[in-house]
Amino acid sequence: MLDTCVFTRRTCRPRHTPTLRARRRALAENDDTDAEQLRTELGRLGVVVRDEHKRQQWRRTRPISGPHT
């Protein structure tokens, strides 16, 4: 199953793919801690993830940068 952008319905960018796959695996294994850590990492990469019925929906935002990370 591919992870799909909420707005464009496009598949994810290559640099986000491994992290989205790892998070999908963590969700399938009910590993909430890993899933949350991977959500945070995706946020740093400029991707917001929402879960709906065990599926990830994502959209791009601006990457988080600066002293607040």
Rank of each mutant, 00 (worst) to 15 (best):
N30H: 10
R10Q: 14
T69N: 06
P67M: 09
H16C: 12
L45Y: 02
R23V: 00
S65P: 03
E52Y: 08
R15D: 11
R24C: 02
D3G: 05
L20R: 02
D32P: 01
P14I: 11
D32L: 13
T61Y: 03
A26H: 00
V47A: 02
R15W: 06
L42N: 02
T4W: 15
H16Y: 15
D34V: 03
G66A: 07
D32Y: 10
R25L: 10
V6H: 08
R62M: 12
D34M: 09
V49W: 00
P67R: 08
Q56D: 08
R62I: 03
E41D: 09
T4Y: 15
R39G: 04
I64A: 14
E36F: 13
R24D: 13
L20P: 00
Q37E: 12
E29P: 03
G46D: 01
E41N: 05
C12E: 10
P67S: 05
C12Y: 09
R9N: 11
Q57F: 10
A35E: 02
R21H: 12
D3N: 14
H68R: 12
E41P: 03
T17F: 13
H16E: 11
T19S: 03
K54P: 03
H68S: 15
N30P: 04
Q57R: 15
R59G: 11
T40N: 07
E52W: 15
Q57G: 07
L2F: 12
T69L: 10
A35C: 06
A35F: 01
L2W: 03
E29L: 12
R9P: 02
R25E: 14
M1K: 06
I64E: 13
T19G: 07
H53Q: 09
G66H: 04
C12N: 09
E29W: 05
T11S: 12
R50Q: 10
E52N: 08
K54Q: 15
D32K: 10
R21K: 12
R60G: 14
R55C: 14
D3E: 15
G46R: 06
G46L: 01
Q37Y: 13
T8G: 02
T69F: 03
R25D: 15
K54H: 12
D51T: 10
R13S: 06
G46A: 03
H68L: 12
D32E: 14
R25S: 10
L45A: 03
R55A: 05
R23F: 00
T4C: 07
R24F: 11
L42C: 07
H16M: 10
R39P: 01
R24P: 00
L38T: 02
T4L: 09
T69D: 10
T40L: 14
R62W: 11
T8E: 09
R9C: 05
T17N: 07
P18Y: 04
Q37G: 00
Q37L: 15
R59M: 13
L45S: 05
E29V: 01
R50S: 04
R13L: 14
R9V: 09
G43K: 07
T69E: 06
G46H: 01
A26M: 04
R55N: 13
M1G: 15
V48N: 10
T11I: 08
